[in-house]
Amino acid sequence: MDITSSIQEFSLAPGINERIAACVRELRDRRGLSLEALAEASGVSRSMISLIERGESSPTAVVLERLATGLGVSLATLFEAPAATPHPVSRRPDQVEWRDPASGYLRRNVSPGGFPSPIQIVEVVFPAGARVAYETAARPGITHQQVWVLEGTIKVVLGEERFELGAGDCLAMVLDRPITYHNPAAKPARYCVVIVASPPA
């Protein structure tokens, strides 16, 4: 199946909003944050966080990235399934897929959920013409990220720096500035994101 078919045939996985809801609630409780405190830390309104935690909203990638930053985790963490016993192998049928309702981009958590590793791998299928702008600048700790383009072309703007990447290209960066992804082509792009986050000092 080509990547265009992947986008066309993908439908929102049942229960994904509930999974995100449970993860946000658990992380907020673990950090002892009230709704108001998380709203202040993330820039997401208290009412929106409440809707997300009840599974009554389909938040965009931009909103979820703000929440993840406020909670001190990566965006990929919010899609992880609770695992009683983390396993080092992530089987393809178990890998969580989620589509951004704003841009239509499809992301898949490749790494084993809950396994104690600082590395997370995500695959993204980015529709033709799609654009996603993450406005967050300061993130807890230091987050290293590499983007490896597998098919197509994407443009990345990191702060004031601009990069155009084609198939086979790999961009290394530290996520300490706002970042924008854009697919300028007439066909979808597919790329792999590798994230390594160090905890705050």
Rank of each mutant, 00 (worst) to 15 (best):
T143R: 10
P200M: 08
E53N: 08
L171S: 12
I52D: 09
V157E: 15
D100L: 08
G166L: 01
S90R: 00
Q8Y: 06
S111L: 10
V157S: 13
G55Q: 08
I142E: 11
F10D: 15
E97Y: 00
R30F: 05
L27I: 03
G166F: 07
A84N: 10
A172I: 00
G104K: 06
P188L: 12
L165A: 01
E53I: 06
R54T: 01
A13P: 01
M1A: 14
L165G: 04
L165T: 09
A201L: 11
P178K: 09
E123G: 02
V24M: 05
R108P: 01
Q145V: 03
E135R: 12
P178E: 11
R25H: 09
P101R: 03
G152I: 02
Q145F: 01
T143M: 13
A189E: 07
M48Q: 12
S74N: 12
G72S: 06
V124L: 08
S5M: 09
C170Y: 05
E80C: 09
F79S: 08
E97D: 01
G72K: 01
P140D: 09
F163W: 13
P88K: 09
A37Y: 05
R99E: 02
L67T: 04
G55P: 06
S45A: 11
S45H: 08
V149M: 04
V63Y: 03
F163T: 05
I16W: 07
I20S: 00
G166C: 04
L64N: 02
S117L: 10
T69H: 03
E164W: 02
G159L: 10
K155S: 14
T4K: 13
T4M: 06
V193Q: 13
V62E: 15
R91G: 00
E161D: 14
L78P: 00
Q120P: 03
P88N: 04
R131V: 14
Q120M: 13
V147T: 15
P59N: 11
E9L: 12
A197G: 09
F126Y: 12
N183T: 04
S5F: 00
L165S: 07
A189C: 04
Q95K: 04
E151V: 00
G55L: 02
I20F: 04
L51A: 12
N17A: 14
V132W: 06
T85E: 14
D2S: 03
G114A: 09
P93T: 03
T153D: 11
D2V: 01
V73W: 01
I119Q: 11
S34E: 14
D100N: 09
A76C: 00
D176P: 06
V96A: 07
P93G: 03
L33R: 04
G72E: 12
L175S: 13
T143K: 04
G104E: 12
I52P: 04
D169S: 12
A39C: 06
E161G: 03
S45F: 08
A172D: 15
V96H: 00
Q95G: 01
L12Q: 15
L27W: 10
Y134W: 10
C192T: 14
D100M: 05
V147F: 01
I195S: 11
Q8D: 14
R25K: 13
P199K: 14
H144A: 13
C23H: 11
P178V: 07
A201Y: 10
M173L: 15
Y134R: 07
P200S: 08
L12S: 14
E160K: 10
R139C: 02
D169W: 03
